[in-house]
Design a protein around this nucleic acid. Structure first.
Length: 588
DNA sequence: GCCGTTTTCGGCCCGACTGTTTTCAGTCG
């Protein structure tokens, strides 16, 4: 999906970097904050401008607002064009490399006249930088390493993979009996869909710190030690699949645990906001506890609840900690009661070997009934246009319906519901005629072709079909592989509300589609969401958990999620739409 | 550049680690 917000945010980030270079730290911070806000907006920034609401966004004042307006009007920001001339082009990028700071770059620029990345690398290697006052051998090595490492840091890992890696390290560390508590913090704990690095926190006695850190750096997967102290150690881990990731380990005392967890779970923006509130109340919050500023007396720190309560807030779950209004809601006592995995009653998007799934329906039944407490599974094999996926034609799906009826009879109840993932064709019509769709219990409709064009019209038309219950993976994006196709999700949400159609939260690690900010918009509009695994094999059913996490990051409660309902209630949802849009009710 | 039930000016989160230093600046998260 083409997104002007992301482009604008990028420029604001670059302006922040330039101000950092110019030693204008606070202005840099303001731009960085604004960039972050723009990036997070669910709605197109142009709508805020149109409605004159730009200045009502906290963190955007008259200065940045006028630059945003200029960007929308002229496609550029003249101040940025001006600033770019003051800083070598390569350096704007280099400032954001972890391990290289604006101050060092500035000194190298001023004293050596270096302006490009390649010249910089050369000067670092031939000893010119090392001669500068304040620089030395180690520092030069560090900068070279930072340039090399940048690529690793840029390649963010998918949540599911990062979690597997983090869990493995946790299991290794648990061998040490000196570790009394251990927890994964950072963006993994907040369940962000991609992960930069891994933060692990432990509780141990002061005397055991060295032993733990020594053990940590000696793990066979550790490729490089970046820093090693007795409170904090950072390493680069290389996984069997060749992926490299930074892992930080920090050790705390028992009575600091809650403050440490709170601090290192972040987000940075959430923490800054929380600490501002603490400050207003004459309190100081750091990773060791909550303290009274005047007397230095420690008043909280053992648990996260205690930390939040000490500064007058209720506990805020990690998934909400992004400074997207959760603190204001917490103050008002209006935090949502988020959906949980245990609320899930079924999976509404599953492929069997009738199309491109690996397993037979029988195998799926046995596996799912054993492992999950679901009341139903909807089998949604592909329709005929998906030739590569062995999509079913009209005859084959009728055969599949018969097979499912037989299998349900064997287990004594209708555990398997009959569905399809029907292709939305180029003109917005569907790959099955209504007569076939009317025979099914549940219909997922998805776009699988023409990813370059704006697909809003196709999706809106598909939603008007009385038998379409969910729009599958609404944007079609594959994280780090393919941008989503252009689609106006605001229009889709509006149509969903109008027609009684749900939107999917697709749990596949590469998809995680739709994103949290859009889920939140859907929740605000009161439309229904279905968390679905889109499973093609038995292992994929486990992804339901990360779909629930994503929904939680979008502030979804149980009532927003269609598959927290019993099948009778789902049928009501299906039949309401069929009635409203002129279709035949299920089973009629 | 942004923000404000102590402020429209004067603040802007806070501590660990490293390297280059003899007490601290730079950088990170």
């Amino acid at each position: 999906m083409y997104n002007i917000n992301k482009d604008l945010a990028n420029i604001l980030y670059k302006m922040a970097a330039i101000y950092e270079f110019k030693d204008d730290t606070f202005r840099a911070r303001a731009y960085e904050r604004a960039a972050h806000i723009v990036e997070d907006l669910p709605d197109d920034i142009r709508n805020y401008v149109k409605e004159g609401k730009l200045l009502s966004i906290k963190g955007i004042g008259p200065g940045i607002a006028s630059k945003i307006e200029e960007y929308i009007r002229d496609g550029k920001i003249s101040k940025y064009e001006e600033l770019k001339k003051e800083v070598p082009e390569d350096f704007i990028e280099l400032i954001d490399f972890p391990g290289i700071g604006a101050k060092s770059l500035k000194k190298i620029y001023q004293e050596l006249g270096i302006t490009t990345k390649n010249e910089l690398i050369k000067a670092l290697k031939d000893g010119r930088v090392e001669q500068l006052k304040g620089f030395g051998k180690k520092k030069v090595e560090g900068m070279l390493k930072a340039i090399k490492m940048h690529e690793i840091a840029q390649r963010r890992m998918l949540l599911w993979h990062a979690l597997e890696l983090a869990n493995y390290i946790v299991e290794e560390l648990k061998q040490l009996k000196e570790i009394r508590k251990i927890e994964i913090a950072g963006s993994i704990r907040r369940r962000k869909i991609t992960i930069g690095d891994i933060d692990i926190l432990v509780v141990a006695d002061d005397n055991d710190r060295h032993k733990i850190m020594d053990f940590f750096v000696s793990l066979p997967e550790v490729k490089e030690v970046l820093v090693k102290g007795d409170k904090k150690t950072s390493v680069i881990i290389k996984t069997k699949s060749g992926r490299e990731k930074q892992v930080d380990l920090r050790i705390f005392r028992e009575d600091e645990w809650g403050a440490a967890l709170q601090y290192f779970t972040g987000s940075k923006e959430h923490n800054v906001h929380v600490r501002e509130i603490a400050k207003e109340k004459g309190l100081k919050l750091n990773e060791y506890g909550v303290f009274k500023v005047d007397t230095e007396e420690k008043i909280a720190g053992k648990t996260e609840e205690e930390v939040y309560n000490a500064i007058g807030l209720p506990y805020i779950v990690p998934e909400l900690r992004e400074d997207r209004g959760e603190i204001e809601s917490a103050i008002k006592g209006e935090l949502p009661d988020l959906v949980e995995f245990s609320d899930i009653k079924g999976d509404m998007h599953v492929h069997s070997n009738w199309s491109d799934g690996v397993n037979s329906i029988d195998e799926i039944i046995r596996f799912v009934k054993e492992k999950y407490k679901y009341e139903y599974i909807v089998i949604t094999d592909h329709s005929k246009s998906q030739r590569v996926a062995h999509g079913l034609d009209e005859n084959r799906i009728l055969e599949e319906i018969e097979e499912i009826r037989k299998l349900n009879k064997l287990i004594g109840f209708d555990f398997i519901k009959i569905g399809t993932e029907v292709d939305i064709l180029l003109d917005g019509s569907l790959d099955f005629p209504d007569e076939i769709l009317a025979k099914l219990d549940f219909v997922v409709a998805s776009v699988h072709s023409h990813f370059k064009r704006d697909n809003t019209d196709r999706i809106l038309k598909a939603m008007e079909n009385p038998y379409v219950n969910v729009i599958g993976h609404p944007t079609g994006r594959l994280i780090g592989v393919r941008e989503g196709y252009p689609v106006d999700l605001d229009a889709v949400i509006k149509k969903a509300k109008e027609t009684g159609t749900a939107l999917e939260i697709n749990c596949q690690p590469l998809r995680m589609d739709i994103e949290d900010t859009w889920i939140r918009r859907a929740v605000e509009e009161g439309i229904m969401l279905a968390i679905s695994t889109d499973s093609h094999n038995l292992g994929s059913f486990e992804y339901m958990k990360q779909g629930v996490w994503l929904a939680r990051r979008g502030w979804a409660t149980k009532k927003n999620i269609l598959n927290t309902r019993s099948w009778d209630e789902v049928l009501k949802f299906v039949n309401e739409k069929r009635k409203k849009m002129g279709g035949i009710p299920v089973g009629a």
